[in-house]
């Protein structure tokens, strides 16, 4: 080379490991998933390369006896249930997190730090242990059934498990810290004088909550909504353990397609749909927040 001294540039090789690892274990495999989704089904699990839309078609239609296509709402229901449960979880988390975060924000600094610590602490406990705990509480002869029977309220109740409500409870429980922390962060700056000003202007508590506190909490709620909604879309443990595997969500639908002898291309197609939904949410969020950020700057 033209006499140029070889100087290893840290700006390049410093980023190299991250690119190599992400390239090999994320970008390349995701590309393969998209290809597999368009591939053909292997005889004994696995897949064949090719280009067919059959797997995506299978999400909506099934082949009848005479090879004609019949509309099959089964998988569409799973997708709808996933979206609905994720949205409901997000809404409940927001409704719970806002008053709790407000209460924490109103405390003196030392108590505030202690309460934030208490909110985050369960989050450090293994996810599977937290979901398992709800199994003991809700299960057959579980804590709730036992206590209801002890006070003579009921004789015998159908299991509280294996339904949408149990899944919803588990998901809210799993992800609530992801909502409280950003909402608290946006309310931490909440100035007591603003609330006093609102009262001086003859607003009562509820008007103040709606017109002063809620708008201040809003950026945190939006940030928290993304943090809760996205992992809910891909939830696997809650549908298997609390939903009993009968109330399928997209996460465990994908998972079940990858055992031996199952339909890999179909699983890949559902994975592509899930990924597209997540990307859509993130893109809407990016578009929503960018203009606001620029306006504030």
């Amino acid at each position: 080379m033209s006499g140029a001294r070889f100087r290893p540039d840290f700006r390049l090789w410093g980023l190299l490991p991250a690119w190599v690892i992400m390239g090999f274990t994320l970008i390349l495999p995701i590309g393969i998933v998209v290809l597999v989704a368009f591939g053909t089904r292997g005889a004994y699990g696995g897949f064949g390369w090719g280009f067919s839309g059959a797997s995506f078609q299978q999400i909506l239609f099934q082949k009848g006896w005479t090879e004609e296509l019949e509309f099959n709402p089964q998988y569409l229901e799973i997708i709808a249930r996933t979206l609905w449960l994720a949205a409901l979880t997000t809404a409940i988390c927001a409704a719970l997190a806002t008053p709790v975060a407000y209460y924490i924000a109103c405390q003196p600094p030392k108590r505030r730090a202690a309460l934030v610590y208490l909110v985050t602490l369960p989050f450090w406990v293994s996810m599977i242990v937290r979901v398992y705990a709800w199994l003991i509480i809700l299960g057959n002869d579980g804590v709730i059934e036992k206590s209801l029977r002890a006070v003579g309220l009921v004789e015998d109740i159908d299991s509280l498990l294996f339904n949408n409500t149990a899944m919803l409870l588990g998901m809210v429980y799993s992800y609530i810290p992801l909502m409280i922390l950003p909402v608290f962060a946006s309310m931490e700056k909440l100035d007591g004088t603003l609330i006093e000003a609102s009262h001086d202007l003859y607003a009562n508590r509820w008007v103040t909550a709606r017109r002063v506190i809620l708008p201040l909490a809003r950026p945190g709620i939006v940030a928290g909504a993304v943090l809760v909604f996205v992992p809910c879309l891909g939830a696997v443990l809650e549908p298997i353990l609390l939903g009993g595997g009968k109330q399928m969500l997209m996460g465990n639908l994908i998972q079940t397609q990858f055992g031996g002898g199952r339909n890999w291309p179909f699983g890949a197609a559902v994975a592509v749909v899930l990924m597209a939904l997540v990307m859509l949410v993130l893109m809407i969020n990016a578009l929503r927040t960018r203009p606001a950020g620029e306006a504030a700057a």
């Binding site: 980023l15 994320l26 998972q255 990924m275």
Partner: peptide
């Protein structure tokens, strides 16, 4: 003057943007 700074930042945080189950089946296939 880092080249592709924003893209690199997205790549480093990519696991947070993708549902874990999708990444899991992806590495399984790979």
């Amino acid at each position: 003057d880092v080249r592709a700074r924003r893209l690199s930042e997205v790549v480093v945080n990519l696991p947070l943007l993708l549902p874990e189950i999708v990444v899991a089946v992806a590495v399984l296939i790979l």
